[in-house]
């Protein structure tokens, strides 16, 4: 579904990503873990086409998208779930869901199906997006990406700053996406949460992918990883 090779990125003269290579297969949930400043968000922004100073290969379902602007990548099936949840204060919940155009060849989740899966959205459809709680905004961001028919969700720390109960709801939502055949690339600091929703993990440090881990490795090395992440 997603293949990244030799991806480097800069902020002016400072290099933020160095030769990143990774792969996400269709139907997989893959996380990127790494401490603050490791380049996780930059990586996701590069994949979406929002960071200009970048070089390397990005393929989405076999199509080279590395030179495409963000809106074209979205039309090809990338679903953007940014770290600030991407909520608009001037759009109602229903308008958030109406905003993204359908990705090429995708039907997208119907409104009925979204409202059924996330009943909270139906109850609050007329409310301004920013009046939702943090967890509800996160659900809205995921639902919006599903509405577009995105094949690959790019989620930047969906659980950040949320209470454990809410984190569990986000986890359920992501597992639901996976069960329906969706593919997710997830940035996550919370390794315990990551190991409950994801199939595989990449460890990012100082702009490089330093390790690729499976769930068993994450669980057995949890203490070491937490120390590395500085949590």
């Amino acid at each position: 579904m997603l293949r990244v090779d030799g991806l480097s990125a800069w902020y002016g003269a400072a290099q933020a990503l160095r030769d990143v290579a990774l792969e996400v297969r269709g139907g997989e949930v893959v996380t990127i873990v790494g401490r603050n400043g490791a380049g996780k968000t930059t990586l996701l922004r590069c994949l979406m086409g929002l960071h200009k100073q970048q070089r390397g290969t990005v393929e989405l379902a076999g199509t080279d998208v590395a030179r495409l602007p963000a809106h074209k990548r979205a039309r090809l099936g990338m679903g953007w779930v940014p770290d600030d949840r991407g909520t608009y204060s001037s759009l109602s919940v229903a308008e958030h869901l109406a905003l993204p155009p359908r990705a090429a060849g995708a039907a997208g989740w119907s409104l009925d199906r979204l409202y059924e899966t996330f009943p909270m959205l139906a109850e609050r459809r007329a409310v301004a997006g920013t009046q939702l709680s943090g967890g509800e905004q996160q659900i809205l961001a995921i639902a919006r990406a599903l509405r577009s028919g995105a094949r690959l969700l790019l989620c930047d720390e969906p659980t950040e700053g949320l209470a454990p109960v809410v984190v569990e709801r986000i986890g359920a939502a992501l597992r639901e996406v996976k069960q329906q055949g969706g593919t997710v690339l997830l940035i996550e600091q919370n390794v315990r949460f990551a190991s409950t929703v994801a199939d595989r993990h990449y460890l990012l440090a100082q702009g490089r992918v330093v390790e690729s881990l499976d769930n068993a490795q994450v669980r057995s090395r949890e203490r070491e990883l937490l120390t590395h992440l500085g949590i």
Partner: peptide
């Protein structure tokens, strides 16, 4: 309100 986000959601 948010031009960059709107581009990332598929709107030119």
């Amino acid at each position: 309100e948010r031009a960059e986000l709107t581009r990332a959601l598929g709107i030119d």
